[in-house]
Design a binder for these strands. Structure first.
Lengths: 337, 337
DNA sequence: TTGAAAGCGCTAACAT
DNA sequence: ATGTTAGCGCTTTCAA
C-alpha cells in the first residue's frame, strides 16, 4: 500500500516516492509547469494516475492563499427568489471553476454578520443577499468582507457593488395598474420589517400616493412567505380594500388561497398582485398579476462583479439596477361598483 | 498597524506579539484550553478582540484534518425537490456547526463523479443526491467518497447509507386511485432515463399492471421539468389515455398548462397526477393530485446519517425508506364515459 | 532542470 | 502553565 501520509490519503509525497523525484517536482507537474523534463513529467503523471492521486485542496489553499470558493448568505433558503439567485450564482461561478458555500440566516438578522464573517474566511469572496442587518452594522462589517457584492441592498462603503431591483418602480407600476382598473382603495401587505426591498416598495407607494391623492392606500403588516398571506385574510377584509398589493408572489398565493377559503372571488371581489414572477405565478388560480424580476440574471451578474473584485480588475463598478416588468394576468380586474 | 502576515490579514502571530505570549498559547486560549493562566488568557482575549482576530479556517483545517463542511451534489438546482433537500440538509448541518458546499451537475451524468470527487476533497463528507451515473461508476467511486450518504439511489458498497423514497409504491397508489375512478387507459410520462427514481416508478407500474390486467398503461418519454410536460401534450393526446401519471409535479404542471391551452378540461376530459407534493402543487388550477414526499425531512435525515459516519459512530445503518402519501386534489376525477 | 528548504496559519506533542 | 518545535499538504523561492 502506498498510504503513508498521516491522513491516510494519498499525498504528494507518495507520488514523489513512486516516481523517484522530489515532491517539488510532482507539484510542478501537477500545475503544468513546463520546466520539467518531459520524461520525468510522464513518469510523475503515471505515478499519479496509478495512485489515483488528487492534490489536497486544503493544502493548496493554504499555500496559495485562495480557496476557489465563494460564499453566499441568504435570509431564507426556502424563498424561491433566493433559490434562483443561488442557482444563477452557482452556475456562473462553476463555469470559472469556483464553488459556492451557502449560509442561511433563517431571517435572524443578528446571526447574519457572524455567518457572513465565517463564510468569508473560508472563501475568496462573498455575496450578501438582501441582508436584514442595519445600515450601521452593514457598513461596519463590509470592509472586512471584501471582496463583497450586495444584492438588493446598498452601502456607502467603497468598492462594494450593489445589484438592486427597482422595487419602488415595480410597486408603482402595479398600483397604477390597479388604479387604472378603477380601484380607489388599495392595501399593501408589507414584507419583513428589516427588508430593504420592503423599504423600497414603501417609497414607491409614497410616490404613487403623491401622484394619486384620490386613491386610499392602507399599510398592513406582513412577512415574506406563504403563511403570511394566508394569515392576513382578516386584516385584508377589514381594510375594505379592493386591490391588494402583496409583498411578493408567495404572500399573494397564500392570500389567494385564504380568500378562496372564505368564498371570495378573485378578481371579482378583490384584485391581488404579487411581485417577482416566480415560475409558479402563472399556475395559480387565477394566474397572478405581478412584477417580473430577472432574478437568475442577477445571480450571474453577482458572480461577474465578484470575479472582477477577486481578480482586482475593477474598483469602479458601482453595480446595476434592474427594472421589473409588469406582468398582467387574471388575478386583477375592474373594481367592484 | 498590526498587519504582519503575508496575506495581509491578522494572524495568530499578531495576537501573540500583542499579548506578549507564544502563538501556541494564543491557540490554546482560542480553543478554550483551560490549562492557561486566567490572567494570561484574559490578556490574549483582549488582544484578539482589539485586533479583531479570527482564526483562519484553512490553517485550522489543514492542522486538524477536517473542514467542518459537507458537500452535496444535485442533478439540477432548479428542481424544487433538490432545493428542499438542500434546505433540510443545510439547516440540520448548521445546527451542528457545519456548512454546505453545493455542486450542480446540470443533469450531465459524466460530470457527476468529477464534481463529487472535488467536493469531497474539500469537505468532511458528501451527500450524493439522485446521481444519474451508472451503478458500476457509482460503485467504483463510492469508496473514495466516504463518508457518503446517498439519496434516492442505492449501492452495494458497504457503509454507504441510502435514503430512498418508495416511488414504486407511490406511483402504484396513484394508478390505483385513477383505476378506482374508472380510468382504463393510463399513460406514464416518464422522467430522465438515468434517474433511479424513474426506474422505481416503472417497477411500481409493472406491479400495477400485473394486478390490473384490465387497465392499459402506455409509456411516454419525458423528463423532469416543466417544459417536458408542456411539450408532451401531443404525445399524451395521441396516446388516447384519460389518466396521466406525470413523473413529478413540475411535469404535471407543464402538462396541465399545455392541455389548458388546447382547451381541454381537467379533470373533465383528462385526469392528471403529479409526484412530490411541492408547496405549489395545491395552487395550480385545478389543485394537483399527487403523492406527497416528506422531502425536507429527507435532507435532515441525510445529515444525521452523515454526521454519524463522520463521527465514526455507525457502520450498521443501512438507511431509511420513505413512503409517499396519496394526496387527492381536484386534478383527478371520474373517467369520461 | 531539479532538489532542498522555507512558508502558508494553525494545532498538538514535547520539553521545560 | 508556557514556549519550542514539528507537522498538516502544498507551492515557490533559492541553490545547485
Amino acid at each position: 500500500m502506498a498510504r503513508k501520509s498521516a491522513t491516510g490519503r494519498i499525498g504528494i509525497a507518495d507520488v514523489a516516492v513512486k516516481a523517484g523525484v522530489s515532491h517539488a517536482t510532482v507539484s510542478r507537474v501537477m500545475n503544468g509547469n513546463f520546466t520539467v523534463d518531459p520524461d520525468i513529467a510522464a513518469r510523475v503523471r503515471a505515478a499519479a494516475v496509478e495512485l489515483k492521486y488528487q492534490p489536497n485542496p486544503v493544502g493548496r489553499s493554504l499555500a496559495l492563499g485562495k480557496t476557489d470558493t465563494i460564499g453566499i448568505v441568504v435570509p431564507d433558503l426556502a424563498n424561491p427568489t433566493f433559490q434562483a439567485i443561488l442557482r444563477g450564482l452557482s452556475r456562473a461561478a462553476a463555469q470559472d471553476g469556483y464553488r459556492v458555500l451557502i449560509a442561511d440566516s433563517f431571517e435572524v438578522s443578528s446571526e447574519e454578520s457572524i455567518l457572513a464573517g465565517e463564510a468569508r474566511r473560508r472563501c475568496d469572496g462573498l455575496v450578501l443577499c438582501a441582508p436584514r442587518m442595519s445600515d450601521a452594522e452593514l457598513e461596519e462589517i463590509a470592509p472586512s468582507l471584501h471582496p463583497l457584492v450586495l444584492i438588493n441592498r446598498t452601502t456607502s462603503t467603497k468598492g462594494v457593488p450593489s445589484l438592486v431591483v427597482d422595487y419602488g418602480q415595480g410597486v408603482q407600476d402595479l398600483a397604477e395598474h390597479l388604479a387604472g382598473l378603477g380601484h380607489t382603495r388599495l392595501a399593501f401587505l408589507a414584507g419583513p420589517p428589516r427588508s430593504a426591498s420592503n423599504a423600497l416598495r414603501l417609497e414607491g407607494l409614497e410616490a404613487f400616493k403623491a401622484a394619486h391623492p384620490e386613491v386610499d392606500v392602507r399599510m398592513l403588516e406582513g412577512g415574506s412567505d406563504f403563511d403570511t398571506g394566508h394569515e392576513a385574510v382578516d386584516a385584508v377584509l377589514d381594510s375594505g380594500a379592493t386591490g391588494i398589493l402583496a409583498f411578493n408572489d408567495l404572500v399573494a398565493m397564500g392570500l389567494l388561497s385564504g380568500l378562496h377559503e372564505r368564498g371570495l372571488d378573485i378578481p371579482g371581489d378583490i384584485s391581488i398582485t404579487g411581485f417577482d414572477d416566480i415560475p409558479f405565478a402563472r399556475y395559480t388560480t387565477p394566474g397572478l398579476t405581478t412584477a417580473a424580476v430577472p432574478i437568475t440574471e442577477l445571480g450571474q451578474e453577482a458572480w461577474q462583479q465578484l470575479r472582477a473584485l477577486i481578480r482586482k480588475e475593477s474598483t469602479d463598478t458601482p453595480g446595476s439596477r434592474y427594472q421589473p416588468r409588469l406582468e398582467v394576468r387574471a388575478s386583477t380586474g375592474p373594481a367592484k361598483k
